[in-house]
Design a binder for these strands. Structure first.
Lengths: 227, 227
DNA sequence: GTATTCCGCTTTGTATACAGAAAGTGATGC
DNA sequence: GCATCACTTTCTGTATACAAAGCGGAATAC
């Protein structure tokens, strides 16, 4: 068991899990790629046992798949991605509605501050940073909605759509933060119906051209693969 | 790798996962119980390695928790259970709305048949069977809604609330199937608003007295523990 | 009698070994 | 040149070994 600086022990399996997740979110592991445990264990500087424990967790989280033998990165299938985005839409609408009911004024004030910073940062931000800011806004809304389970479900969906979202965000820098601002205004007004409509528009706007985004994602990962 | 009769290999880890899940759903593993891997491996007739792989999956699925050392069954905490039921409510409402849009006539016809059988069976059914029928109805709706991701999310929530649901169902045999009938009628009429309102009523009806159900669940598991 | 310490045993996280399955490679036949 | 086969190597699922951490009981001190 490795020790962190704060005296909290982090197991090798936990570390492998976190590092694998990073590899997935950075597209260092590509769709349909079959994972080689020996190489991966070496890469992550651990033995196969904690690595396999981490791989099993990621399978349960939907980030990896398990065949009869071995683990692999899921293919980018249109039907699955479509389902993921739709699930996200439904969950986000529920979350924003609950946030209208439950968010504290202090919480909304802090979110407005975050939004100001996001807007200031957007013109020069990398795509990774844009996504971070996007997720930050939505995750804060989820926290303000006061349902930890739903917040966790949203986080999982975010991981699973990360690549497609990255591509879509790259192609479309404009508008996200102003849409966030509009949504926040509705939440502050405790206008659930309005907030949900804007959230739906915001996410459907993103959903447009999922097939195109997936095709672009394939182009992107093939480019990565050629690296 | 064990062979099933149909030539599909089932790994020891897969088997352990399924058996552990069964133990959890049957309350053979109790809230807050610390798991002993050696005893459990012996009980499941496997070695610790595939057992730990299964345990890790169950942690990722929210059915178990992992401390700095070892695995345990989550405590029945009111806030978590409340969140789980609320998440289920939101998800089920989204599902029933999508089912209104997407369900085929044949699919709805089959569900009506299932409902007839469920109603016929209810007076003499065990609680386990009642829950199976309840879950069967909702899962079929989820299938008819045509979003596999959301169906999977619902299945996971169902696992996580199983014990509390069991208690609540035991205390309240009446009304479920007639409520299912009403919901199905709204879906057949493609009345999303009506269907969602009934679904909300159906689940909130269940949610009433979650604290009481959790207390009763504790009584139940203490009785089990004394076995 | 109670609190503390020590020691032996057990448990857990991880590394390594092993066996079977799968993949790769080279030789042979057509 | 291509297909097939046999052999070798590699990979994967699992069992086992090992070291560290934790627990429980006995001994000791007050």
């Amino acid at each position: 068991m490795a020790e962190t600086g704060e005296g909290t022990a982090v197991s090798a399996a936990d570390r492998a899990h976190a590092e694998l997740r990073e590899l997935l979110l950075r597209f260092a592991l590509l769709p349909k790629q079959k994972l080689n445990e020996v190489a991966l264990a070496e890469r992550l500087n651990t033995s196969r046992t904690p690595l396999r424990e981490a791989l099993n967790r990621l399978v349960a989280e939907g980030l990896l798949e398990k065949g009869t033998r071995g683990f692999s990165v899921p293919d980018l299938r249109v039907d699955v991605v479509t389902d993921l985005f739709e699930a996200r839409l439904e969950l986000e609408c529920a979350i924003v509605r609950l946030a209208c009911e439950r968010a504290t004024e202090a919480g909304l004030e802090a979110l407005a501050g975050f939004l100001d910073e996001s807007i200031a940062e957007t013109p020069d931000a990398s795509v990774d940073r844009l996504i971070e800011l996007d997720i930050g806004f939505h995750d804060t809304l989820a926290r303000l909605a006061g349902n930890a389970v739903m917040r966790g479900m949203l986080a999982n969906l975010n991981d699973r759509i990360h690549l497609v979202r990255w591509i879509a965000m790259d192609g479309r820098r404009a508008g996200t933060q102003s849409q966030h601002r509009d949504i926040l205004a509705r939440v502050r007004a405790r206008d659930a119906v309005g907030a949900m409509a804007l959230m739906r528009e915001h996410i459907l706007h993103r959903n447009d051209g999922i097939v195109a985004a997936i095709r672009a994602a394939y182009g992107h990962v093939h480019m990565l693969g050629a690296r």
